[in-house]
């Protein structure tokens, strides 16, 4: 383990997306973004839809959109369990807009609270997705 580095891992249910040692990661936590450096105090947090920034070598090495999930931080590593993850460069703007309008339609069609809540969540994800491209 290199000095001053965090072992960062990004995993989706389907595969291990990223596993590398980096200087810092900025994670979109439920109650605000937080940066993880080496020797961060142990923490478990839920994530909101947003962009994970991976800092390495003094610049942002990678920007990855996550739709939600969990982050586990220990002094030596940072593990993000993402429900859906996509590098910002690969986001398809048209598809994201389509998703937003679909989600809005779902919200209008929603019959009960559970459907409404899930549609609202989808809208939030799609909005964040659009913001990440912009």
């Amino acid at each position: 383990m290199a000095e001053g580095k965090v072992a960062f891992e990004l995993v989706s249910p389907e595969r291990l997306l990223l596993s590398q040692e980096v200087d810092m990661v900025v994670v979109p936590g439920e109650e605000g973004d937080f940066g993880v450096l080496e020797r961060h105090s142990p923490m478990i947090s839920t994530l909101r839809p947003g962009v994970i920034q991976v800092h390495d070598g003094g610049s942002v090495a990678e920007r990855i959109f996550v739709a939600g999930g969990f982050a586990e931080v220990t002094p030596a590593r940072c593990t993000v369990l993402a429900e859906e993850a996509l590098p910002v460069g690969e986001i398809d703007r048209a598809a994201a807009e389509q998703r937003l309008s679909d989600a809005k339609d779902d919200l209008i069609d929603a019959k009960d609270d559970a459907e409404k809540a899930s549609a609202e969540r989808q809208i939030k994800i799609a909005e964040e997705l659009l913001r990440a491209t912009g």
């Binding site: 249910p13 439920e30 478990i44 947090s45 839920t46 220990t74």
Partner: peptide
């Protein structure tokens, strides 16, 4: 020593647990 360390929970322990448990079931099914 490391694993057993006290974690900080954000937002709270219960909120995380109530989000983590259903996801875990989906993962187990998957």
């Amino acid at each position: 020593g490391l694993e057993g360390a006290v974690y900080e929970y954000e937002p709270g322990e219960e909120e995380i647990l109530s989000a983590l448990l259903p996801t875990n079931i989906s993962i187990q099914v998957f």
